[in-house]
């Protein structure tokens, strides 16, 4: 437990180290979310366009 707390304290740099790692992980997760949403939206657009063309014919 004490070893864990020492590790969490990161010397005296806890604030700087943990906010750096936290920010990086958050940006990675956000990028995954954005990329998936962008792909989903794009296939939705393509699907609708195809459906419209089919109904035109």
């Amino acid at each position: 437990m004490e070893a864990f707390l020492t590790w969490l304290a990161m010397g005296k740099y806890a604030l700087y180290v943990w906010s750096s790692f936290g920010l990086t992980v958050a940006v990675v997760l956000l990028n995954i979310h954005w990329a998936r949403r962008s792909f989903r939206d794009a296939s939705e657009v393509a699907r609708r366009r195809l459906a419209m063309r089919r109904s035109d014919q």
Binding site: N31, R36, F39, A42, S43
Partner: peptide, 12 residues
Amino acid sequence: MVLMRARGEILR
């Protein structure tokens, strides 16, 4: 990430 987005971009 780039490939995932590029696939979407192609569909669009």
